[in-house]
Write a protein that binds this DNA or RNA. Structure first.
Ligand code: FES
Ligand code: FES
Lengths: 140, 140
DNA sequence: ATAAAGCTGAGTAAATTTATCGGGATTACC
DNA sequence: GGTAATCCCGATAAATTTACTCAGCTTTAT
């Protein structure tokens, strides 16, 4: 039930981009240094983020990455899904995968995973980058 | 964000034990066959479950495993924790681990993971084995 | 005594994760 | 037009974890 480093780094990097949202594109090297993440590994993380349309890139000197939309329009769930695939505690509750136990209809445990999946999705989709950088003192 | 096979098998096996709660101890070999899980792998799963006090074992012929308490007294969260360790999306929000990003105090993302951890824990602790085997038609 | 069962540490093959490498493609600036 | 900053991206390597297997022991009903 752990996030991979990819997901963790990705969220941290996106938070950083949110903080720099008005400063023009931020070069990857800078993010890597400030967040203490391998530059080349970060490159691999930014590729899917860009393909998911969450960030825009600018090439050449003065280039870098920037959020594709305002921080309030990007959900943490979007980032996780782009980097780790569909949110689901077991494969068989995430569309189009082989179900390990075969008995999809009769399976008693399926309901657990569906509920867990829904709660996880729901929480991650109700937190935007604006929430993360703005109000560290919001309740719940 | 996936459960390992260990966790998934473990929950399925425990559900099976819950179904057999009044029948005396169930031999592992039977569970392995019915649930289509490697017998030897299941042995490795039952060890931590027993050490966590969730099941009792009876040795010798006519032996096997049985739930240590009534199905209503065993939470799915108990099973997951016994098999996968503390529920937490990243290590640093689960007591006594090294925090990868170092800046525990200032870390903006920490709040996300704490909330996620709490929601996951909460859900898994509000579902007991009795819920799983009893009412497949409960809402939410 | 026998056989049915649990108990357990060590070992292993495959998969996944976490990077690293090497080079290419764009573009601001001079 | 040359240079250097920067993104782009497939291939590969190292490390770790997962999912099992093996071999042999202990307990106990019959
Ligand atoms: S665990 Fe997938 S349907 Fe049962
Ligand atoms: S991710 Fe652990 S404190 Fe920031």
């Amino acid at each position: 039930m752990k996030l991979s480093a990819k997901g963790e780094y990705g969220v941290r990097a996106m938070v950083m981009l949110a903080l720099c949202y008005d400063d023009g594109p931020v070069p990857l090297r800078e993010i890597a240094e400030k967040e203490n993440i391998s530059y080349q590994f970060l490159e691999q993380i930014f590729l899917p983020l860009r393909r998911a349309g969450l960030i825009d890139s600018v090439r050449g000197p003065k280039g870098g990455y920037a959020l594709a939309r305002a921080p309030g329009e990007i959900k943490v769930g979007d980032i996780i899904r782009a980097l780790e695939g569909p949110i689901a505690p077991v494969d068989c509750v995430s569309e189009g995968k082989s179900d390990r136990c075969g008995r999809t209809e009769a399976c008693l445990t399926r309901g657990i995973w569906e509920k867990l999946r829904d709660r996880m999705s729901q929480l991650l989709d109700e937190i935007t980058l604006a929430d993360v950088i703005g109000l560290s003192a919001d309740s719940t």
